[in-house]
Amino acid sequence: MSLHHLSLLTSQSPASPPTSWVPGPSHLRPQCKAGEQIFLWRGTNSPPPSTIDNLVIRHIASLANRASLRDTTSYGAGLRKFHLFCDIFSIPEADRLPASFKLLHSFALWAITDPQPGDSIFLRGLRTWHIAQGWPPPLSESHHNRINWSLCSLENIQISRQRPLRPPVTLSMLVALKATLVLSDPFDACVWAIASCAFFGMMRFGEVSVTSRAAFTPSKHLTRAHTFFGVDLLGSPYACLDLPSAKTARAGEIQSVFLNEQGDLCPLAALCNLAQVVPALADDPLFSWRDSRGDIHLMAKIRALERINSILIAWGWGTSFGHSFRIGGASFYLAKKIDPEIVRIAGHWKSLAYETYIRVFEQISSRHLANAAAR
Protein backbone atom coordinates (compact mmCIF):
# COMPACT_ATOMS: atom_id res chain seq x y z
CA MET A 1 0.00 0.00 0.00
CA SER A 2 1.54 3.36 -1.04
CA LEU A 3 0.72 6.98 -0.17
CA HIS A 4 -1.38 9.04 -2.62
CA HIS A 5 -4.93 10.04 -3.69
CA LEU A 6 -6.46 11.13 -0.35
CA SER A 7 -8.39 14.29 0.63
CA LEU A 8 -6.93 17.82 0.74
CA LEU A 9 -7.34 20.31 3.61
CA THR A 10 -6.68 24.07 3.59
CA SER A 11 -3.07 25.24 3.85
CA GLN A 12 -1.82 27.74 6.41
CA SER A 13 1.48 29.62 6.42
CA PRO A 14 4.09 28.47 8.94
CA ALA A 15 4.78 30.79 11.84
CA SER A 16 7.82 33.05 11.83
CA PRO A 17 10.58 31.88 14.16
CA PRO A 18 10.89 33.80 17.44
CA THR A 19 14.32 34.96 18.53
CA SER A 20 14.40 34.08 22.25
CA TRP A 21 16.69 31.39 23.59
CA VAL A 22 16.17 31.28 27.35
CA PRO A 23 15.54 28.74 30.13
CA GLY A 24 12.01 28.11 31.34
CA PRO A 25 10.43 30.48 33.88
CA SER A 26 10.93 29.72 37.56
CA HIS A 27 10.33 31.54 40.84
CA LEU A 28 13.95 30.69 41.63
CA ARG A 29 15.08 32.86 38.69
CA PRO A 30 13.18 36.18 38.83
CA GLN A 31 13.37 38.69 36.02
CA CYS A 32 16.30 41.01 36.72
CA LYS A 33 19.28 42.66 35.08
CA ALA A 34 22.08 40.37 33.90
CA GLY A 35 24.41 41.76 36.55
CA GLU A 36 21.98 40.80 39.33
CA GLN A 37 21.43 37.19 38.27
CA ILE A 38 24.31 35.65 40.23
CA PHE A 39 22.85 37.24 43.38
CA LEU A 40 19.10 36.84 42.80
CA TRP A 41 18.96 33.50 40.98
CA ARG A 42 18.88 30.88 43.72
CA GLY A 43 18.60 27.13 44.25
CA THR A 44 16.33 24.99 46.38
CA ASN A 45 19.13 23.98 48.76
CA SER A 46 20.30 26.16 51.66
CA PRO A 47 24.06 26.79 51.82
CA PRO A 48 25.98 26.16 55.04
CA PRO A 49 26.31 29.26 57.26
CA SER A 50 29.44 31.32 56.61
CA THR A 51 29.10 33.69 59.60
CA ILE A 52 27.76 33.62 63.13
CA ASP A 53 23.99 33.94 63.52
CA ASN A 54 23.84 37.71 63.92
CA LEU A 55 21.81 40.12 61.80
CA VAL A 56 24.50 42.82 61.73
CA ILE A 57 27.26 40.38 60.74
CA ARG A 58 25.06 38.79 58.07
CA HIS A 59 24.25 42.24 56.64
CA ILE A 60 27.94 43.16 56.48
CA ALA A 61 28.67 39.83 54.79
CA SER A 62 25.94 40.54 52.21
CA LEU A 63 27.41 43.97 51.45
CA ALA A 64 30.88 42.44 51.09
CA ASN A 65 29.48 39.76 48.80
CA ARG A 66 28.00 42.27 46.36
CA ALA A 67 30.98 44.63 46.54
CA SER A 68 33.47 41.89 45.72
CA LEU A 69 32.77 42.03 41.98
CA ARG A 70 32.92 45.12 39.80
CA ASP A 71 31.31 43.63 36.71
CA THR A 72 28.88 40.72 36.89
CA THR A 73 26.96 41.33 33.64
CA SER A 74 29.39 39.20 31.60
CA TYR A 75 28.37 36.09 33.56
CA GLY A 76 24.69 36.25 32.57
CA ALA A 77 24.92 34.38 29.25
CA GLY A 78 26.73 31.42 30.78
CA LEU A 79 24.32 31.21 33.72
CA ARG A 80 21.29 31.32 31.43
CA LYS A 81 22.80 28.67 29.18
CA PHE A 82 23.48 26.45 32.19
CA HIS A 83 19.81 26.54 33.23
CA LEU A 84 18.72 25.98 29.63
CA PHE A 85 20.94 22.87 29.55
CA CYS A 86 19.38 21.69 32.82
CA ASP A 87 15.87 22.22 31.41
CA ILE A 88 16.67 20.25 28.24
CA PHE A 89 18.12 17.30 30.15
CA SER A 90 15.53 17.43 32.98
CA ILE A 91 18.04 18.20 35.75
CA PRO A 92 16.15 18.79 39.03
CA GLU A 93 16.50 22.21 40.63
CA ALA A 94 18.02 20.58 43.71
CA ASP A 95 20.94 19.31 41.61
CA ARG A 96 21.74 22.66 40.00
CA LEU A 97 23.01 24.45 43.10
CA PRO A 98 25.40 23.22 44.27
CA ALA A 99 26.30 21.59 40.94
CA SER A 100 28.36 18.41 40.83
CA PHE A 101 31.47 17.87 38.72
CA LYS A 102 29.50 15.35 36.65
CA LEU A 103 26.84 17.94 35.84
CA LEU A 104 29.30 20.74 35.05
CA HIS A 105 31.43 18.43 32.91
CA SER A 106 28.33 17.42 30.95
CA PHE A 107 27.27 21.05 30.58
CA ALA A 108 30.71 22.03 29.28
CA LEU A 109 30.61 19.23 26.68
CA TRP A 110 27.12 20.27 25.56
CA ALA A 111 27.86 23.99 25.48
CA ILE A 112 30.85 23.67 23.18
CA THR A 113 28.80 21.84 20.52
CA ASP A 114 26.76 25.01 19.88
CA PRO A 115 28.96 27.92 21.00
CA GLN A 116 27.36 31.27 21.76
CA PRO A 117 28.82 34.65 22.74
CA GLY A 118 29.94 34.60 26.38
CA ASP A 119 30.62 30.85 26.52
CA SER A 120 34.34 31.37 27.06
CA ILE A 121 33.70 32.34 30.69
CA PHE A 122 30.67 30.18 31.51
CA LEU A 123 32.50 28.02 34.08
CA ARG A 124 33.93 31.11 35.72
CA GLY A 125 30.43 32.54 35.93
CA LEU A 126 29.06 29.36 37.51
CA ARG A 127 31.91 29.42 40.05
CA THR A 128 31.06 33.02 40.91
CA TRP A 129 27.36 32.13 41.19
CA HIS A 130 28.13 29.37 43.69
CA ILE A 131 30.29 31.65 45.83
CA ALA A 132 27.76 34.51 45.70
CA GLN A 133 25.05 32.10 46.86
CA GLY A 134 27.14 30.92 49.80
CA TRP A 135 28.51 27.67 48.37
CA PRO A 136 32.16 26.65 47.97
CA PRO A 137 33.66 26.63 44.44
CA PRO A 138 32.19 23.57 42.66
CA LEU A 139 35.31 22.45 40.79
CA SER A 140 38.73 21.45 42.06
CA GLU A 141 41.93 21.85 40.05
CA SER A 142 41.73 18.21 38.97
CA HIS A 143 38.13 18.76 37.83
CA HIS A 144 39.21 21.72 35.72
CA ASN A 145 42.01 19.68 34.20
CA ARG A 146 39.55 16.90 33.24
CA ILE A 147 37.10 19.35 31.66
CA ASN A 148 39.87 21.15 29.76
CA TRP A 149 41.08 17.78 28.47
CA SER A 150 37.62 17.03 27.07
CA LEU A 151 37.17 20.48 25.55
CA CYS A 152 40.56 20.42 23.87
CA SER A 153 39.78 16.98 22.43
CA LEU A 154 36.45 18.20 21.06
CA GLU A 155 38.14 21.23 19.58
CA ASN A 156 40.50 18.91 17.70
CA ILE A 157 37.52 16.93 16.41
CA GLN A 158 35.73 20.09 15.29
CA ILE A 159 38.81 21.34 13.46
CA SER A 160 39.07 18.03 11.59
CA ARG A 161 35.32 18.05 10.81
CA GLN A 162 35.32 21.78 9.87
CA ARG A 163 31.93 22.14 11.55
CA PRO A 164 30.70 21.88 15.18
CA LEU A 165 29.27 18.69 16.63
CA ARG A 166 25.49 18.67 16.39
CA PRO A 167 23.36 18.27 19.51
CA PRO A 168 20.71 15.53 19.23
CA VAL A 169 16.97 16.03 19.01
CA THR A 170 15.43 14.44 22.11
CA LEU A 171 12.12 12.67 22.68
CA SER A 172 10.87 15.71 24.62
CA MET A 173 11.61 17.90 21.60
CA LEU A 174 9.66 15.51 19.39
CA VAL A 175 6.70 15.70 21.80
CA ALA A 176 6.88 19.51 21.67
CA LEU A 177 6.97 19.49 17.87
CA LYS A 178 3.86 17.36 17.59
CA ALA A 179 2.02 19.40 20.24
CA THR A 180 2.75 22.64 18.36
CA LEU A 181 2.31 21.60 14.74
CA VAL A 182 -1.22 21.67 13.29
CA LEU A 183 -1.49 18.20 11.81
CA SER A 184 -4.53 19.11 9.71
CA ASP A 185 -2.46 21.79 7.95
CA PRO A 186 -0.69 20.51 4.80
CA PHE A 187 2.65 22.20 5.55
CA ASP A 188 2.72 21.17 9.21
CA ALA A 189 1.56 17.63 8.41
CA CYS A 190 4.55 17.30 6.08
CA VAL A 191 6.95 18.74 8.67
CA TRP A 192 5.68 16.30 11.32
CA ALA A 193 6.04 13.31 8.98
CA ILE A 194 9.61 14.39 8.21
CA ALA A 195 10.48 14.82 11.90
CA SER A 196 8.96 11.52 13.02
CA CYS A 197 10.44 9.49 10.16
CA ALA A 198 13.87 11.12 10.42
CA PHE A 199 14.01 10.47 14.19
CA PHE A 200 12.69 6.92 14.42
CA GLY A 201 14.20 5.92 11.08
CA MET A 202 17.56 7.53 11.95
CA MET A 203 17.54 9.16 8.53
CA ARG A 204 19.74 11.92 7.20
CA PHE A 205 17.82 15.14 6.63
CA GLY A 206 18.86 15.11 2.97
CA GLU A 207 16.92 11.84 2.63
CA VAL A 208 13.64 13.39 3.82
CA SER A 209 13.96 16.80 2.15
CA VAL A 210 15.37 18.37 -1.01
CA THR A 211 17.44 21.53 -1.37
CA SER A 212 15.18 22.98 -4.08
CA ARG A 213 12.41 22.13 -6.54
CA ALA A 214 14.94 22.06 -9.38
CA ALA A 215 17.03 19.51 -7.48
CA PHE A 216 14.19 16.97 -7.16
CA THR A 217 14.53 13.83 -9.29
CA PRO A 218 12.22 10.81 -8.81
CA SER A 219 15.12 8.50 -9.61
CA LYS A 220 17.13 9.93 -6.70
CA HIS A 221 14.61 11.18 -4.15
CA LEU A 222 11.71 9.63 -2.22
CA THR A 223 8.32 9.71 -3.92
CA ARG A 224 4.93 8.48 -2.75
CA ALA A 225 5.54 5.30 -4.77
CA HIS A 226 8.64 4.56 -2.70
CA THR A 227 6.54 4.12 0.47
CA PHE A 228 4.98 0.78 1.42
CA PHE A 229 3.11 -0.60 4.42
CA GLY A 230 3.32 -4.22 5.48
CA VAL A 231 3.08 -6.71 8.34
CA ASP A 232 6.10 -8.64 9.56
CA LEU A 233 6.42 -12.25 10.80
CA LEU A 234 5.16 -11.25 14.26
CA GLY A 235 2.03 -9.63 12.82
CA SER A 236 3.30 -6.12 13.61
CA PRO A 237 2.77 -3.34 11.06
CA TYR A 238 5.71 -1.48 9.59
CA ALA A 239 6.42 1.01 6.84
CA CYS A 240 9.24 0.73 4.36
CA LEU A 241 10.81 3.71 2.61
CA ASP A 242 12.89 2.63 -0.38
CA LEU A 243 15.60 5.25 -0.89
CA PRO A 244 16.55 5.28 -4.59
CA SER A 245 19.82 6.97 -3.69
CA ALA A 246 21.58 6.95 -0.30
CA LYS A 247 24.94 8.07 1.03
CA THR A 248 25.95 4.57 2.12
CA ALA A 249 24.53 2.75 -0.92
CA ARG A 250 26.28 1.95 -4.18
CA ALA A 251 25.19 3.71 -7.37
CA GLY A 252 21.80 2.36 -8.46
CA GLU A 253 21.28 0.42 -5.20
CA ILE A 254 18.01 0.91 -3.32
CA GLN A 255 18.38 1.25 0.45
CA SER A 256 15.36 0.56 2.67
CA VAL A 257 14.41 2.31 5.90
CA PHE A 258 12.01 0.40 8.15
CA LEU A 259 9.66 2.29 10.44
CA ASN A 260 7.69 0.71 13.28
CA GLU A 261 4.85 1.75 15.57
CA GLN A 262 5.97 4.21 18.26
CA GLY A 263 2.94 5.13 20.36
CA ASP A 264 1.77 8.76 20.20
CA LEU A 265 4.77 9.80 18.10
CA CYS A 266 4.34 7.01 15.55
CA PRO A 267 5.91 7.63 12.11
CA LEU A 268 3.39 5.24 10.51
CA ALA A 269 0.54 7.43 11.76
CA ALA A 270 2.42 10.52 10.60
CA LEU A 271 2.73 9.07 7.07
CA CYS A 272 -0.96 8.11 6.98
CA ASN A 273 -1.93 11.60 8.15
CA LEU A 274 0.28 13.11 5.44
CA ALA A 275 -1.45 10.97 2.79
CA GLN A 276 -4.87 12.15 3.96
CA VAL A 277 -4.04 15.84 4.33
CA VAL A 278 -1.80 16.07 1.25
CA PRO A 279 -3.01 13.73 -1.52
CA ALA A 280 -0.47 13.33 -4.30
CA LEU A 281 0.44 11.20 -7.30
CA ALA A 282 2.85 8.29 -7.16
CA ASP A 283 5.68 10.31 -8.77
CA ASP A 284 5.22 13.32 -6.48
CA PRO A 285 7.71 13.83 -3.63
CA LEU A 286 6.88 11.75 -0.57
CA PHE A 287 7.32 14.70 1.75
CA SER A 288 5.28 17.35 0.00
CA TRP A 289 2.48 19.81 0.82
CA ARG A 290 -0.25 21.71 -1.02
CA ASP A 291 -0.89 25.45 -0.96
CA SER A 292 -4.32 27.13 -0.78
CA ARG A 293 -4.67 26.85 -4.58
CA GLY A 294 -4.10 23.10 -4.44
CA ASP A 295 -0.66 23.21 -6.03
CA ILE A 296 1.76 20.64 -4.64
CA HIS A 297 5.21 21.64 -3.38
CA LEU A 298 8.11 19.50 -2.28
CA MET A 299 9.41 20.20 1.22
CA ALA A 300 12.60 22.23 0.90
CA LYS A 301 15.19 21.52 3.56
CA ILE A 302 15.54 25.13 4.61
CA ARG A 303 11.78 25.61 5.10
CA ALA A 304 11.40 22.44 7.15
CA LEU A 305 14.29 23.40 9.42
CA GLU A 306 12.94 26.96 9.80
CA ARG A 307 9.60 25.60 11.02
CA ILE A 308 11.18 23.00 13.31
CA ASN A 309 13.69 25.44 14.79
CA SER A 310 11.04 28.12 15.35
CA ILE A 311 9.17 25.63 17.56
CA LEU A 312 12.28 24.48 19.42
CA ILE A 313 13.24 28.10 20.09
CA ALA A 314 9.74 28.89 21.36
CA TRP A 315 9.99 25.94 23.77
CA GLY A 316 13.38 27.16 24.98
CA TRP A 317 15.70 24.69 23.23
CA GLY A 318 17.49 26.95 20.77
CA THR A 319 18.33 25.85 17.26
CA SER A 320 18.97 22.37 15.94
CA PHE A 321 20.42 20.87 12.76
CA GLY A 322 19.28 18.35 10.17
CA HIS A 323 21.48 15.49 11.31
CA SER A 324 20.22 16.02 14.89
CA PHE A 325 17.26 13.74 14.12
CA ARG A 326 19.50 10.88 12.97
CA ILE A 327 21.77 11.35 16.00
CA GLY A 328 18.80 11.81 18.33
CA GLY A 329 17.06 8.66 17.12
CA ALA A 330 20.19 6.56 17.58
CA SER A 331 20.80 8.07 21.03
CA PHE A 332 17.20 7.37 22.01
CA TYR A 333 17.32 3.71 20.97
CA LEU A 334 20.65 3.17 22.72
CA ALA A 335 19.32 4.83 25.88
CA LYS A 336 16.44 2.32 25.75
CA LYS A 337 19.09 -0.45 25.73
CA ILE A 338 18.38 -1.50 22.15
CA ASP A 339 21.22 -3.72 20.91
CA PRO A 340 23.83 -1.36 19.36
CA GLU A 341 24.19 -3.71 16.40
CA ILE A 342 20.45 -3.41 15.71
CA VAL A 343 20.73 0.38 15.87
CA ARG A 344 23.69 0.26 13.48
CA ILE A 345 21.77 -1.88 10.99
CA ALA A 346 18.59 0.19 11.19
CA GLY A 347 20.56 3.42 10.75
CA HIS A 348 22.60 2.04 7.84
CA TRP A 349 25.99 2.64 9.39
CA LYS A 350 28.62 0.81 7.36
CA SER A 351 30.25 -2.47 8.39
CA LEU A 352 31.47 -5.66 6.71
CA ALA A 353 28.37 -7.54 7.89
CA TYR A 354 25.89 -4.95 6.58
CA GLU A 355 24.67 -6.76 3.46
CA THR A 356 24.11 -10.06 5.29
CA TYR A 357 22.08 -8.51 8.12
CA ILE A 358 19.91 -6.17 6.06
CA ARG A 359 18.43 -9.02 3.98
CA VAL A 360 16.52 -10.38 6.99
CA PHE A 361 16.08 -7.18 8.98
CA GLU A 362 12.71 -6.27 7.44
CA GLN A 363 11.03 -9.30 9.03
CA ILE A 364 12.39 -8.80 12.56
CA SER A 365 12.65 -5.00 12.93
CA SER A 366 9.51 -4.64 15.08
CA ARG A 367 10.88 -7.13 17.64
CA HIS A 368 13.68 -4.69 18.39
CA LEU A 369 12.36 -1.20 17.59
CA ALA A 370 8.55 -1.14 17.79
CA ASN A 371 6.91 0.97 20.51
CA ALA A 372 10.21 2.04 22.03
CA ALA A 373 8.68 5.48 22.69
CA ALA A 374 5.85 3.91 24.69
CA ARG A 375 8.35 1.86 26.71
Rank of each mutant, 00 (worst) to 15 (best):
P17H: 09
P18E: 12
S20Y: 10
W21H: 14
V22G: 09
V22K: 13
S26T: 08
S26W: 06
H27Y: 11
L28H: 14
L28P: 02
R29P: 04
G35I: 02
I38V: 10
L40C: 05
L40V: 01
L40D: 02
W41N: 05
N45I: 08
N45K: 14
S50E: 10
D53K: 11
V56E: 08
I60F: 02
A64T: 03
A67E: 01
A67C: 05
A67I: 00
A67Y: 01
D71P: 00
D71N: 13
T73C: 07
T73K: 08
G78A: 06
L79T: 02
K81I: 04
K81Y: 13
K81P: 00
C86Q: 09
C86G: 09
I88R: 15
S90K: 13
P92I: 13
P98G: 07
A99D: 10
A99E: 13
A99S: 14
F101M: 03
K102E: 15
H105T: 05
H105A: 14
F107I: 03
F107D: 06
A108V: 05
I112Y: 04
P115D: 05
Q116H: 04
Q116P: 00
P117W: 03
G118C: 02
G118Q: 01
G118K: 01
D119Q: 03
S120R: 05
I121Y: 04
F122R: 08
W129L: 07
Q133N: 15
P137L: 07
